[in-house]
């Protein structure tokens, strides 16, 4: 394809037909890197539209043009538009409002919510903040003991009321108690749930409505395929539409992308998730220890996708 179009370069304006083969190839590559099919398609369509009618310079092949436009589009997408610095946000809430900064971790089963919560706790403690944990997964066997183990290792205070309790009230109790003891941050663990399970999604919406956390982090794993989009959009909409009447509408405020160490260069879930709601990736999980938490490197991501 490349050599064929090289001959045309500089001669005529690019048409849809000129672009189609290179775009299809790129789309397949993105899908192979685990970008959701519909999103790979939409990205390629908009890159195609931006190049239609352009007269390529004499040295550029169509495929090179397409790749460079895609590099720009992906970089724009993956570079956070708003601040993702929760450290300074937490400090400013504590200073100005004299109360702890509250973060809820939610997501489907087994993605790494509780582990990420422990990593974020460690990160904030390293920066000198006093962090309390709230065991609001009152359903899954071992969930409370899992958090207790982390609390012990991290020397963080844990608020728990055992199993089969109303998660929203456990969170309320944790936040009130933490505020009394002058904590800087409260991190709330929740039970994993499938995005189509309405009763469970309703209970998450209630927990959020009752406790008005400062941040709602969606935890998703880099291993997830096309389901990434559905997970994120359904969590995002459920926490407003399934909330009790008169609640302040809320949305997912950020993404934690876990298990990044298990996917080699198949980093496409990052694209799917950010594309789904426009929310930034706040942290990336790269292993199973407390240190394995990173900020996203959008340039490296784009390189891995287009390599």
């Amino acid at each position: 394809v490349m050599s064929f179009f090289k001959g045309l370069a500089g001669i005529k304006e690019l048409t849809k037909e000129d672009l189609a083969p290179a775009l299809q190839k790129l789309q397949d590559q993105l899908v192979g890197k685990n970008v959701a099919v519909n999103i790979a398609e939409q990205l390629c369509n908009s890159v195609g539209a931006s190049l239609e009618g352009i007269k390529p310079g004499s040295f550029s092949s169509v495929s090179r043009l397409v790749r460079s436009a895609m590099t720009d589009a992906l970089t724009r997408l993956l570079t956070p538009k708003q601040s993702i610095d929760i450290l300074s946000q937490a400090k400013s809430v504590k200073k100005n409002e004299k109360r702890p900064f509250v973060v809820v971790f939610c997501g489907v089963n087994g993605v790494g919510k509780s582990t990420s919560l422990a990593k974020v706790c460690f990160y904030l403690q390293q920066q000198g903040l006093v962090v309390h944990l709230a065991a609001c997964d009152t359903f899954r066997s071992g969930a409370v003991e899992q958090l207790r183990t982390h609390a012990r290792c991290l020397k963080a205070e844990l608020h728990e009321q055992g199993y089969n309790k109303d998660a929203a009230s456990v969170a309320k109790y944790a936040i009130t108690t933490a505020a009394k003891s002058n904590a800087d941050v409260v991190l709330i663990d929740t039970a994993g749930r499938m995005q189509d399970n309405e009763p469970l999604m309703r209970s998450l919406a209630k927990l959020i409505s009752v406790n008005s956390p400062d941040r709602i982090f969606f935890v998703g794993e880099a291993l997830v395929g096309n389901d990434a989009v559905d997970q994120l959009t359904k969590f995002d909409s459920a926490i407003s539409t399934l909330a009790p009447p008169q609640s302040v509408p809320r949305h997912v405020d950020g993404i934690i992308l876990t298990k990044f160490d298990t996917i080699d260069d198949k980093v496409g879930a990052a694209v799917s998730m950010v594309y789904a709601t426009g929310q930034p990736i706040v942290f990336v999980g790269v292993g199973q220890t407390y240190m394995d938490l990173r900020k996203v490197n959008s340039k490296a991501l784009v390189n891995a996708l287009l390599k």
Partner: peptide
């Protein structure tokens, strides 16, 4: 022996 709470999880189940 690695995951926090792993034995409790199995035991309770």
């Amino acid at each position: 022996t690695f995951r926090a709470g792993a034995f409790d999880q199995l035991k309770q189940n």
